Simulated assay, not measured.
Amino acid sequence: MTKTPVIAIPMGDPAGIGPEITVGALAKADVYNAGKPVVIGNTAIMEKAARIIGADVAINEISSIDEAQYQYGTIDVLSLNNVDLDSFTFGEVQAQCGQAAFEYIEKAVSLANEGLADVIATTPINKESLKAADVPHIGHTEMLAAMTDTEDPLTMFEVKNMRIFFLTRHLSLKDAIDQMTKERVLDYLKRCDAALQRLGVSSRKFAVAGLNPHSGENGLFGMEEVDEIRPGIDLAVEAGIDAVGPVPADSVFHQALQGKYDAVLSLYHDQGHIAAKMTDFEKTISITNGLPFLRTSVDHGTAFDIAGKGIASSVSMEECIKLSAKYAPHFTGK
């Protein structure tokens, strides 16, 4: 019998839409019942969020995860009570909110490391708020890497039946091209294959996206494919990885959606992000692999401009929670 996973959900930046989309998602029976959700956050702000969106749920404050009820209609909140409500405002950068968001994540990681949570499903945090709080990390991935002593976490997007990995992330395009070496292509294809194995995926055919138009047309439009990308793929194939390419980037993602490939290795940030978000912006979910535990995340920000107004869509958070429940029973660890 498959174990129902405990899903730790850090509330995110209290001033953002995190509380609202968390309540909105957990107010839906199919989402709530996908696992055993526990929110790490602030009881009063979660209650505010429930009132703002008109959700018919009760907020159950708990002091330890053992007290969670896991009953649809009640949202268990492991409350850290680390926000001064007298000075709190929705939609503004506040140091206390940056610090609070960091502490929610820290607690979620602690639960996962202790085996009390099976997966972490994260909500948006704000880089300016983190900076105002002197938190020494720019985002979730960097925090999680530091908290788990993970050198280079691997990011995967999933939307519909398409999975996308990233050879490079937050670099200028010029610097990203410098990272497109045959050694890196080989290393990442090995890591991507291992990542899908950890998620319980048995069929693992990879396509590597091309960099230049038509994948360079054998050197007519650039030599990157000839000198580095294709040789890296060839080395991966020799190592037993089922990989092809480089496949022109204007068609590879469509082909993956049609089921031709199980995953695509995108060469740079926007190449894969555009493909995923044009497919379905709200249902594009990020999975961080290479950690000791599974982590899924929405792929949007705190949306301070609409926070506290009750108009934020919870669709992405719903998908985030359901995807965490889908993979958690098969996840085999770092």
Results as ranks from 00 to 15, higher is better:
residue 121 A to N: 04
residue 125 I to D: 04
residue 158 E to F: 00
residue 40 I to R: 14
residue 93 V to F: 01
residue 276 A to R: 04
residue 301 G to K: 02
residue 33 N to Y: 08
residue 3 K to R: 14
residue 291 L to F: 02
residue 174 K to L: 07
residue 269 H to K: 13
residue 24 G to M: 15
residue 50 A to C: 12
residue 135 V to H: 14
residue 115 G to N: 13
residue 271 Q to F: 13
residue 218 N to R: 12
residue 175 D to C: 03
residue 293 F to H: 00
residue 88 F to L: 01
residue 316 S to V: 03
residue 92 E to C: 09
residue 79 S to K: 14
residue 328 A to Y: 14
residue 282 E to Y: 11
residue 250 D to M: 15
residue 176 A to W: 04
residue 179 Q to L: 15
residue 126 N to I: 09
residue 217 E to S: 02
residue 207 A to S: 10
residue 123 T to W: 13
residue 65 I to H: 04
residue 226 V to E: 04
residue 12 G to S: 15
residue 26 L to S: 13
residue 168 T to D: 09
residue 110 S to H: 00
residue 77 V to G: 05
residue 309 K to A: 00
residue 131 K to W: 02
residue 24 G to N: 14
residue 64 S to G: 07
residue 105 I to W: 02
residue 287 I to D: 04
residue 166 F to R: 08
residue 177 I to M: 12
residue 26 L to V: 15
residue 238 E to Y: 01
residue 51 R to G: 10
residue 264 V to H: 01
residue 132 A to K: 04
residue 238 E to K: 07
residue 169 R to Y: 11
residue 202 S to G: 06
residue 212 N to H: 14
residue 283 K to A: 11
residue 261 Y to V: 02
residue 159 V to W: 09
residue 156 M to V: 01
residue 47 E to Y: 08
residue 330 H to A: 10
residue 75 I to M: 11
residue 69 Q to K: 10
residue 45 I to L: 08
residue 215 S to P: 05
residue 21 I to R: 10
residue 76 D to A: 11
residue 40 I to E: 13
residue 52 I to T: 15
residue 304 F to T: 00
residue 33 N to T: 07
residue 71 Q to T: 15
residue 214 H to P: 02
residue 217 E to N: 02
residue 263 A to V: 00
residue 148 T to Q: 02
residue 82 N to K: 12
residue 285 I to Y: 08
residue 99 Q to L: 11
residue 298 V to I: 06
residue 23 V to C: 15
residue 29 A to Q: 00
residue 163 R to H: 07
residue 143 M to V: 13
residue 15 A to N: 06
residue 68 A to Q: 03
residue 212 N to Q: 14
residue 240 G to W: 03
